[in-house]
């Protein structure tokens, strides 16, 4: 879980972004001063607004209610919401403020509150604030301006939270992808001294590195003598993949073991020849079966038919 500082940096939330965003949202120093002046109002109405927010909206809505089945979770959310509400009226909008709003996004992403709930809830929240404001201060040019300042900062907040929500989602996907990558490069122990590495899918730079490191570690750990690299599942064997195979073979050789390349389709064989790739430093077999037999005979074993 990256911390919010990292996120700030990664999303480019710096002083310049802050000022350009404030400019775009027309969130001026006067707005902030007006919000600060509304602080006593906010303190007077905090409980009423937040309680109404939870009781009228969230708890009436079956899907939102599911987030709050636990009383402790509910109380914590209400407390956080009250703190959040007062911050709107702090009169400060700096990088710390931004970071705080960013956490709203990462938290929502983590617990699975989709933007539609967030936006819908915020719209309701905003209506609650306005009606409390106009009820207390009446409708006047002054309260209109106050209301506008509140709207600006709320939308400013939402922009940060939603951007972060999306970025956190993308990161989650990337984490899953790297997990899948790891999963998709299993090193299988065939016999005491023989390892099998079935390569599947596209071998990009990152994966090539991972595969190589993982395999070399296993070679040492298992004191393997023979490593079978099966490329039947690799869609295209180009110079990049060939280079990777050659380097792996060389590293394996330095560890005192031998590599056998299997699963070479006829099309791949012809393509490699035309490319001019020389794989003569590797033992090669067209099928995995043959490769296994070769590996076992190299380690003084054999596949035999029972009872023969």
């Amino acid at each position: 879980m990256p911390n919010s500082r990292d996120y700030m940096a990664r999303l480019g939330f710096d002083a310049q972004e802050l000022s350009s965003r404030r400019h775009f949202f027309q969130l001026t120093d006067e707005d902030l001063a007006r919000l600060a002046a509304l602080r006593p109002f906010a303190e007077r109405h905090n409980d009423a607004i937040i309680d109404a927010f939870y009781n009228e909206l969230l708890l009436q809505h079956p899907e939102s209610r599911l987030f709050f089945t636990d009383q402790a979770v509910f109380r914590r959310a209400v407390t956080a919401q009250k703190r959040y509400f007062l911050q709107l009226f702090s009169g400060v909008c700096d990088l710390d403020y931004m970071e705080d709003r960013l956490r709203v996004g990462t938290t929502h992403q983590r617990i699975g509150v989709a933007p539609k709930w967030y936006l819908g809830a915020y719209a309701h929240y905003l209506r609650l604030i306005s009606s409390h404001l106009f009820r207390e201060q009446g409708s006047s040019p002054d309260s209109e301006l106050s209301n506008r300042s509140i709207q600006k900062i709320v939308f400013f907040d939402m922009s940060i939270a939603i951007e972060t929500y999306i970025a956190a989602g993308v990161e989650a996907i990337q984490r899953h992808q790297s997990a899948i990558r790891e999963l998709s490069t299993p090193v299988i122990q065939i016999s005491e001294r023989v390892l099998l590495l079935p390569l599947i899918g596209t071998i990009d730079t990152v994966r090539a590195q991972q595969v190589m490191e993982k395999m070399l570690a296993r070679v040492v750990e298992a004191q393997a003598r023979v490593i079978i690299l099966d490329i039947a599942g690799v869609p295209v064997v180009d110079t990049r993949v060939a280079n990777h195979l050659l380097q792996t073979t060389e590293a394996v050789r330095l560890l005192g073991a031998t590599t056998i390349l299997t699963g070479i389709r006829a099309q791949v064989a012809q393509t490699l020849v035309q490319l001019g790739v020389d794989l003569s430093t590797m033992h090669t077999c067209s099928s995995l079966q043959e490769g296994l037999e070769m590996a076992l005979s190299m380690t003084g074993r054999a596949i035999t038919t029972r009872g023969a």
Partner: peptide, 28 residues
Amino acid sequence: VRRAVRTLAEARGFDSFAVSALTTAATE
């Protein structure tokens, strides 16, 4: 890019050797 080339070559009935050659060249 490689996938797009492969998909097109397969859809047009290129034989598997030609598909392999063309997609590999496109990858390179």
